[in-house]
Write a protein that binds this DNA or RNA. Sequence first.
DNA 1: ATGCCATCTGTAGCGACTACAGACTCAAGC
DNA 2: GCTTGAGTCTGTAGTCGCTACAGATGGCAT
Lengths: 133, 133
Amino acid sequence: MADQAIQIGELSRRTGCNIETIRYYERIGLMPAPPRRGRYRSYGGEDVGRLGFVRRARELGFTLDEVRALLGLAASGQASCAEVRDLAASHLQDVRARIADLKRMERVLAGSVRACDAGQDPGCPLIHALYAV
Amino acid sequence: MADQAIQIGELSRRTGCNIETIRYYERIGLMPAPPRRGRYRSYGGEDVGRLGFVRRARELGFTLDEVRALLGLAASGQASCAEVRDLAASHLQDVRARIADLKRMERVLAGSVRACDAGQDPGCPLIHALYAV
DNA sequence: ATGCCATCTGTAGCGACTACAGACTCAAGC
DNA sequence: GCTTGAGTCTGTAGTCGCTACAGATGGCAT
């Protein structure tokens, strides 16, 4: 069986999640408090799965609260697919809004850098842009 | 003259910057501590300009440390244009990297939502994607 | 016995604000 | 003169998602 007990360091290695972060997730109730072998936390295969889930959801930009919700929905079987979809769709809107924001920044910055390189402006084009809109 | 003394509320209104944030900027030394009229902070036209500068730089995504640097360079005259350009160019790289990150998220999310809408998968496609990569 | 690494708990720090509580100042209305 | 209300003051603590310690144990190899 692949389900032998591992320590926190091994869990960290398998999931790519920092040890301090794992303990943090436990503290805030995102990961369950595992049994102890002596004083050391003892994890099993389920924990590797759950933590991997958390990490991938985080990589998609879900907040920890959203991850918590996703975990709940994942546990509640397939009836919840619509709810998962809605959560994802609303998060997708967030992501798109942030992309739009960043693209606006990008345009302005790129324009200023170009103006700087052109060197027409008597002062500094970016400073100029920041001082008066 | 447009340089009459205004209170913090008016400064807030003119710059669109939260009152608490203005005091925060003063605490961390980004804005100078203004003179007082009685106990109340008394600002002038320069402060409106400086705070506007800060706010616009923040809108372009510069960190407060970068803003501090930009303020220093802005004060030091036009010799510093090259330095400003470098700061902006390096920040532009950051912004582009973040856009790339978000676009990756967007692709995955949009794909999952689509898969959900298609409804082929027996389980939930997003949950599925999160559980196994 | 001695190293040495891993793990433990608990606390504080980051960035950039934001949100109070509880005191005060000031001008206007009655 | 007295009250009311809006504005301002200081100081502290909370947010999010970690990250970084300090200082104490645990367990194994030499």
